[in-house]
Design a protein around this nucleic acid. Structure first.
Length: 419
RNA sequence: GGAGGAUUCGCAUAGUGGCCUAGUGCGCACGAUUGGAAAUCGUGUUGGGGUAAAACCCUCACGGGUUCAAAUCCCGUAUCCUCCGCCA
């Protein structure tokens, strides 16, 4: 949710953001109107309640003669209060709906435009030159590391088994990611993959992308698409101590995505799947520290890419391609030789105070209690990272090079060789 | 899945229809006292809405209901605890 005070004082800031996102302006005007209506309803309701309270107090001090009159007046006011409260509840609901319909105010620094209007900030490393590169699935099959046929048999399309060295590679990546995060000061967390509707809504995933989310109808629970959801919900309805910020968590969980509307995209292999495991970084910071923290998260993501010896580029995602919660987003896209293309491996978003308003997360400070800023960043999305490692580090002889950082968890192996 | 019990301002508690504008202790903050500290004493200390600032309104797990009036009575829900059943 955006800050209604900002909207009241500077509505053009919000309108500019909507334009940059390529979104409609109507929801902004609807929100302004709903805010006005609600405040009017609150003022009327408060006045009536005050009157009714006075009338009710008069009942106990009334003499027996006065009592019938006083009581009648109190009854009348009670009925009016009941009516105005229904009106106020309707105005509240209307405001909430209008409020949820407006995305976070995009950073003025975010490039305007849509998916293709990103700005490349940096290109790191040199893409390897592999003659006749094979894709990750061919390599994974040869190594008996990835089994999508049996994944499909057991669970359907976009499912897979990791077997043998594939399974070990997942554990190696997760261990490396968690060890690094721990060094950087993150609290390691194993997070639940099932969350309540209010948690899912609070993180902004039930808006435009609701069709991406799996729901368990019988239990009123959602499967998370990222541990960001659980890590954001972790401090919901809490007032944090300003002095203990920043709070940083590295969460591991399975992630589930319906991938509705992505038919035909990345159907081969494990780049786009319905389920994968991920280590996600999540920070709670003071609002004024959010931009610096965003740069730190990006730096940590790059550090991990560097440890895996991948070549990649960093892009500044355009306003129109931001999630509804994000004010700014940087993606790291790694080079896939078989596709001769950069593909997204990590993504870090600055959600400013948008999520914390929805989830009611504040910090106690000198100027009162204020919403905190939340930021998230992928440390390692396992399946896609394995796909990239196979593709990127394939050797002409069919083996796959193992970067030193992963070797401690792979029995010291320097290369993976088909048996 | 079944049977009981619990949920009050950071923590512990008091509170069975109007004097609750929620008391007390601990903790915390500030001040007094002190050479400095402890102890002691005093003051303050839930959160939100609203306003130019006030006034004012809401908040006793949450949602309904009864009543002129609800922390208190009634119904439902959630969470936690104990026991039974099942179970990795």
């Amino acid at each position: 949710m955006i800050d209604l005070r900002v909207l009241r004082e500077n509505p053009d800031l919000v309108r500019d953001s909507q334009r940059a996102r390529g979104a409609e302006l109507a929801p902004v005007d609807a929100l302004i109107a709903a805010d006005d209506r609600r405040r009017a309803a609150v003022a009327r309701g408060d006045q009536l309640r005050s009157d009714q309270k006075a009338a009710s107090n008069a009942v106990k001090t009334a003499t027996p003669e006065e009592r019938p009159v006083v009581l009648a007046r109190a009854r009348e006011l009670a009925a009016e209060v009941k009516a105005i409260e229904a009106e106020q509840a309707a105005a509240d609901a209307e405001l909430r709906t209008a409020h949820l319909a407006v995305a976070n105010i995009a950073s003025p620094a975010a490039p305007p435009g849509g998916e293709d209007d990103f700005v490349t900030l940096e290109v790191v490393g040199t893409p390897p030159t592999v003659p006749n590169p094979r894709d990750h699935l061919e390599i994974g099959n040869a190594l008996r590391a990835i089994d999508t046929d049996r994944g499909a048999k057991v669970s359907g399309s976009r499912f897979y088994f990791l077997t043998g060295v594939g399974a070990q590679l997942e554990l190696a990546l997760v261990n490396l990611a968690m060890a690094r995060a721990d060094e950087w000061g993150f609290t390691p967390v194993i997070a639940p993959a099932l969350v309540k509707p209010e948690t899912m809504e609070g993180t902004g995933f039930l808006g435009a992308h609701a069709s991406e989310v799996y729901k368990l109808a019988d239990d009123d629970l959602y499967l998370v698409g990222t541990s960001e959801v659980a890590l954001a919900g972790f401090h919901a309805d809490e007032i944090l101590d300003s002095d203990e910020l920043p709070l940083r968590y590295a969460g591991f969980s399975s992630c589930f995505r319906r991938e509705a509307g992505s038919y035909g995209k990345d159907t081969k292999g494990i780049i786009r799947v319905h389920w994968f495991d991920k280590v996600e970084m999540f920070s709670y910071v003071r609002p004024e520290d959010a931009e610096d923290e965003h740069q730190r998260l990006l730096a940590w993501e790059r550090d991990f890419m560097d440890a895996l010896e991948l070549s990649y580029r960093v892009i500044d995602v355009a306003a129109g391609d931001l999630g509804s919660s994000a004010a700014r987003k940087f993606d790291i896209e790694a080079w896939f030789p078989s596709q001769q293309a950069y593909r997204e491996l990590t993504s870090t978003s600055n959600c400013t105070t948008f999520q914390s308003r929805r989830l009611n997360i504040r910090a106690r400070g000198a100027t009162g209690n204020q919403p905190v800023a939340t930021l998230n960043g992928t440390l390692c999305a396992v399946a896609r990272t394995i796909a990239c490692l196979f593709d990127h580090h394939q050797q002409p002889d069919g083996s796959v090079y193992v970067p030193p950082a992963l070797r401690p968890w792979l029995g010291g192996r320097e290369v993976l060789t088909p048996r």
